[in-house]
Design a protein around this nucleic acid. Structure first.
Length: 320
DNA sequence: AAGCGGTTCATTGTAACTTC
DNA sequence: GAAGTTACAATGAACCGCTT
């Protein structure tokens, strides 16, 4: 299995959101990638600029990061042509790796817009090198810039940033420095095409947690009524476990529940509510075994929320 | 039945990060 | 500037239980 380390550059509407094409907020103008074998040796590279069809000028903010002129782009092939070159170049047996989680989504959105038929794996798994870099080297949730990671790892800077092929090259070098087991246990799933029907729903099991991606529902309420969505199973023994703290929301998108398995202890359940391209809702549920202390933290968090709301009520009443 | 206090929940807004 | 993420704050509606 090869790695396709992919990086894209894209442009947006130069005249602001009101004039943008709603079907394509971001138009890809460059595809860069390196191909690595299973031992992370480079065995190929891909680099092509793209002639834009939707936006005829570079947005001024984009111009600050990408040093490229419209004249140069206009000499190139269209997205449809470049994309099919790229997909041919990828070959058959590969997995994507990208810096961050946007590139695969924008690639698919552009492919959809330009009517390019291509069947990616389903579910489409990939390595988010940015995410794993932070987890592995810094053990925190922050997202770092590519430049930060390159200098953090003392990788020599031989090329400018924000040129797709060079960013892909750097990302590949970082990928090589990550622990392989760690990598396998933190593989990401692309959400551009969420499950449509129950049979398509995705179940993933990792060392430390498990993940479930539901089919799409018409509303959040409908999603939160679904048995499978709100079910809580121990991620070690897969038995249904009782909820000590029922599902509660901390905002419009995130819900938590706390469970207890007699064999494996406290279990944290989290639901993230997401909106699909077709304006439907689907959920990503992660279940993870946690310590007793972390269990208490969830309880404390819920109680804090209650307390805060209570105080708000009171002060509001006095003011009125 | 009407009113009040308290709770729960969802929505919206803000802020700080990243990608381009 | 626009899209993505996360976290927290503010608001208002709906509901339950109680008293009047």
């Amino acid at each position: 299995m090869n790695y396709i380390v992919l990086d894209l550059e894209w442009n947006q509407c130069p005249d602001g959101k009101v004039k943008e094409n709603k079907e394509l907020p971001f138009e890809i103008i460059e595809i860069g990638a390196v191909k690595l074998d299973s031992n992370y040796n480079k065995i190929g590279e891909f680099s092509e600029l793209i002639k834009p069809c939707v936006y005829n000028a570079i947005h001024y903010k984009t111009r600050e990061v990408i040093k490229i002129s419209m004249e140069e782009l206009n000499k190139c092939c269209t997205f449809s042509q470049v994309c099919s070159h790229f997909l041919d170049w990828c070959g058959k047996d590969y997995i994507f790796a990208t810096w961050g989680n946007m590139d695969l989504m924008e690639l698919q959105r552009n492919m959809k817009y330009f009517g390019i038929e291509y069947q990616f794996d389903y579910p489409l798994k990939y390595y988010d090198v940015q995410k794993i870099f932070s987890m592995f080297f810094e053990a925190i949730k922050v997202r770092r810039t590519l430049e930060y990671a390159v200098s953090f790892l003392n990788i020599s800077i031989d090329h400018e940033f924000h040129k797709a092929i060079y960013d892909a090259e750097y990302t590949g070098l970082i990928l090589k420095l990550l622990d392989e087991n760690y990598l396998l246990n933190n593989i990401s799933v692309d959400y551009f095409n969420p499950p449509k029907e129950k049979k398509d729903e995705i179940y993933l099991k990792y060392n430390e947690y498990s993940k479930y991606i539901s089919r799409q529902f018409n509303s959040k309420e409908e999603a939160m009524l679904d048995k499978e969505v709100i079910s809580t199973k121990c991620n070690y023994c897969n038995k249904n476990v009782k909820r000590r703290i029922k599902w509660f929301s901390i905002n419009a998108k995130v819900y938590y529940a706390l469970c207890y398995c007699n064999e494996h202890g406290f279990i944290k359940c989290k639901i993230r509510m997401k909106k699909s391209e077709s304006d439907k809702y689907f959920v990503i549920k992660t279940i993870k075994g946690i310590s007793e202390e972390e269990g208490f933290q969830i309880q404390a968090r819920r109680d804090e929320l209650r307390k805060k709301r209570k105080i708000k009520r009171k002060s509001k009443k006095y003011n009125n």
